[in-house]
Design a protein around this nucleic acid. Structure first.
Length: 422
RNA sequence: GGAGGGAUGCCCGAGUGGCUAAAGGGGGCGGACUGUAAAUCCGCUGGCGUACGCCUACGUUGGUUCGAAUCCAACUCCCUCCA
């Protein structure tokens, strides 16, 4: 373990692994955690029915809390989702309907269960929905109780608000209230579950300290905030983008193979950082892998991919993905087992399916046009052979060992099989 | 309430009547080179069973015109100054 002066095991490990960006009072938090188990929360917005790697650092924080005997609370913003966080956004978020929010809540809970053990024990995770209290708020009461403690002058000075005002985008009163409600959440969780720490990305700093102050002013209690660094790759790109969108944690949205591939394709310069943040390998092992030079660092990337995937999808699925990758990339085998599978109806296959359409249906590209361009650009392969004709009909004749392998570029592969469910 | 400025494709940003599916950049995707990396270079980047063509697109709705992102009117939203 790297020496960093902290006494509590949680803070020592969190700091050593690179989770800490800012903290309202690191020493006080350290002392408290060294003394007893504390409850801490992170909020997630139900903007989709799955979380993605953009939230993974937060989830890993919750896991770390649990590991060290503290209680992780995941707050899902069923109430605040109906407002939208203005922080660092270009424009007002589309307001979501209640139905969508409910569906998303269930999906997010599923994601979290992949990483955390839920229950009512002192170090067992809990999931709460702020709609439970926000929906009941009465406006005048809220203004008198909470509104008096918020200074417009200060709110205007927050980067999140300031940016919006300085750009020509504007900010509605609705959005302006987001940080007030987030502060209210913090106080409510403190009162209900004795939560004393709010975690979040560095973009949440303003919202977090607003909550800390609210609790101090109304309840005379000292609670704390801790933020994680904003994650970008070493070359500056935002993390979590892939060919067809975000890197989802739900298998329904992103096959395990692709999730493994995402980590396998990490830039050299990020390997050490990601090993510390997204795997639970000992720090010595992370350092050893990080130090590998040249092509040897590919071994580190494979470890990173398998470990990170194991946390999300289970070790068996991760090993299967690793093996599928090995067969595909290292042996060049056509139909490696455990590649993502796309099923088509037998009748369709018998009639023949144009390749460009099959690429779109299999999810390798988003539209037929994109598939055509892929073929024209020489990036489309059928069983490892470059496809020349974008209109080529695919039939049973193209099957090898009961499957057809379609590839978009060198890294994206799907097996097409005939199936009943299609 | 008064005066002025603005709204363009995923993002930024040119474009003031036809040659504009709309310059340029970013991002994304593909190719080359590599190590399934980075950097670099090249290509592609609205939809549709393709080329031809059709459809959709420059805040919204109408209008002028053979023809409109470009002109006119009303509306919506945003910015700045005055009250």
């Amino acid at each position: 373990m790297v020496e960093n002066g902290f006494k509590s095991s949680f803070m020592r490990e969190a700091a050593a692994r690179g989770f800490i960006f800012q903290c309202t009072d690191a020493d006080a938090l350290d002392a408290l955690m060294a003394e007893k188990s504390v409850a801490a929360y992170i909020g997630f917005d139900p903007t989709a029915d799955s979380l993605h790697v953009g939230s993974l650092i937060q989830i890993m924080m919750l896991r770390l809390l649990q590991k060290h005997g503290h209680r992780p609370i995941a707050l899902v913003g069923g109430g605040t989702a109906r407002i939208g966080d203005p922080s660092f956004r270009e424009e007002a978020r589309r307001l979501m309907t209640e139905d969508i929010i409910q569906t998303n809540l269930a999906g997010i809970e599923g994601c979290l269960r992949q990483f955390l053990t839920f229950g009512s024990g002192a170090s067992e995770a809990a999931l709460v929905n702020n709609a439970d209290w926000l929906d009941k708020l009465a406006y005048i009461d809220l203004l008198r109780d909470v509104g008096v403690h918020f200074s417009i002058n200060r709110m205007l000075a927050f980067d999140s608000v300031k940016n919006r005002l300085e750009r020509e985008q504007g900010l509605t009163f609705l959005e302006f209230n987001y940080s007030i409600l987030q502060s209210y959440d913090f106080r409510e969780l403190n009162r209900r579950m004795n939560v004393v720490l709010q975690l979040g990305g560095s973009d949440q700093w303003g919202n977090i300290i607003s909550g800390v102050e609210l609790v101090r002013r109304t309840d005379q209690k000292s609670v704390m905030g801790l933020t994680t660094p904003l994650l970008t790759t070493s070359s500056g790109a935002k993390m979590g983008k892939t060919a067809n969108g975000a890197v989802w944690l739900s298998e329904k949205r992103l096959p395990v193979f692709d999730y493994w591939q995402f980590w396998r394709n990490t830039e050299d310069a990020d390997v050490g950082r990601f090993l510390r943040l997204f795997t639970e390998l000992p720090l010595e092992e992370c350092a050893r892998l990080e130090a590998l030079q040249g092509a040897e660092i590919n071994e580190a990337k494979k470890v990173l991919a398998t470990e990170a995937t194991a946390l999300c999808h289970g070790r068996n699925a991760a090993l299967a993905a690793a093996e599928a990758a090995r067969q595909t990339f290292e042996e060049g085998r056509v139909a490696a087992a455990d590649l993502p599978v796309h099923e088509v109806a037998e009748a369709d296959m018998a009639a023949g399916i144009p390749v460009f359409r099959l690429f779109a249906e299999a999810g390798l590209v988003k539209t037929n046009g994109e598939a055509r361009r892929l073929v024209r650009g020489g990036g489309a392969r059928l069983n490892n052979d470059v496809i020349q004709d974008e209109n080529k009909l695919i039939t049973q004749q193209d099957m090898v060992d009961g499957a057809i392998k379609l590839s978009a570029g060198k890294k994206h592969h799907v097996l097409v099989k005939v199936g009943v469910s299609a």
